[in-house]
């Protein structure tokens, strides 16, 4: 399968899936290209779903991607899972090529505008006793604890991918000076709401789980939205996030609000 557009490589993942790797001058660009293609695929499915609801289907319904089972994006790749009874990988490849390049472009500018208007603020109680590796991070980076906090809150971060566990958002890039390796031995239990860094990435643990990242503090910001029987991730890939430092009292007050 020949690459095209901002695609670097397309390879087989399994019998019923291909994975597309995107190109770009840096990770940010490759990540954007990935999400542009995903948005174009989603828009196509929605458009067709809309036609289905109407009484008189207009346009070419044979272009419907009824074979599409699921798309799973990550940093610079997109896994596309299809129904083998309806299509083979070559058919999927041709469909991707046909995705209107103009359509992808239009969507990308629209989604960038959306992103610009919304910066999600995540309040963090840095140094919370049960979620603090600040002294370890301080040693690893040769920065003072105050400098670590100042650097972590100094810039906005992009959500590159959501995954691993529900609502776990991989954000980056943290300042080079703050870069630090994962813990040698992962913790068995990281508390819910722990704000953490590893390499050039930062994240919030959406629920209590094992984890090997360096913890900076706690947030009351719930990474999952719960409505009745439905939960969804609060952050989406492409969202822009900024961390702000708060006190223990503010954190506890925030916890009440979230509950």
């Amino acid at each position: 399968m020949q690459a095209f557009g901002c695609i670097k490589r397309i390879v087989t993942a399994g019998a019923d899936a291909i994975i597309v790797y995107f190109d770009g001058a840096n990770l940010d660009e490759a990540n954007s290209a990935c999400h542009q293609m995903l948005a174009a695929i989603d828009a196509k499915q929605e458009h067709i779903a809309h036609i289905d609801v109407g009484k008189k289907p207009e346009g070419d319904t044979s272009t419907r991607w009824s074979w599409l089972r699921e798309c799973v994006p990550s940093y610079d790749s997109l896994l596309i899972i299809f129904d083998m009874a309806l299509i083979d990988s070559h058919g999927v490849y041709l469909a991707l090529r046909e995705l209107d390049a103009e359509n992808i472009y239009r969507l990308s500018t629209a989604s960038e505008q959306r992103v610009k208007t919304s910066v999600v603020e995540i309040p963090v109680w840095y140094g919370a006793p049960n979620a603090s590796d600040l002294s370890i991070v301080s040693k690893k980076t040769s920065l003072s604890i105050e400098e670590v906090i100042a650097l972590h809150t100094s810039t906005t971060y992009k959500v590159y991918a959501v995954g691993f566990s529900p609502g776990f958002a991989y954000m980056g890039d943290i300042p080079e000076a703050l870069k630090c390796a994962r813990l040698g031995t992962p913790r068995k239990r990281v508390p819910k709401g722990a704000v953490a860094i590893a390499d050039r990435q930062t994240a919030v643990y959406p629920s209590e789980s094992p984890g090997g990242w360096n913890l900076l503090g706690l947030t009351a910001f719930d990474m999952l939205l719960h409505k009745d029987q439905h939960s969804e991730s609060r952050l989406r890939a492409g969202d822009v996030v900024k961390f702000v430092s708060i006190t223990e009292q503010e954190y506890k007050a925030g916890l009440q609000v979230e509950l």
């Binding site: 399994g14 899936a17 990550s74």
Partner: peptide
């Protein structure tokens, strides 16, 4: 880089 893991 982390990427999507398919069944199997």
């Amino acid at each position: 880089r982390s990427e999507a893991i398919h069944l199997g």
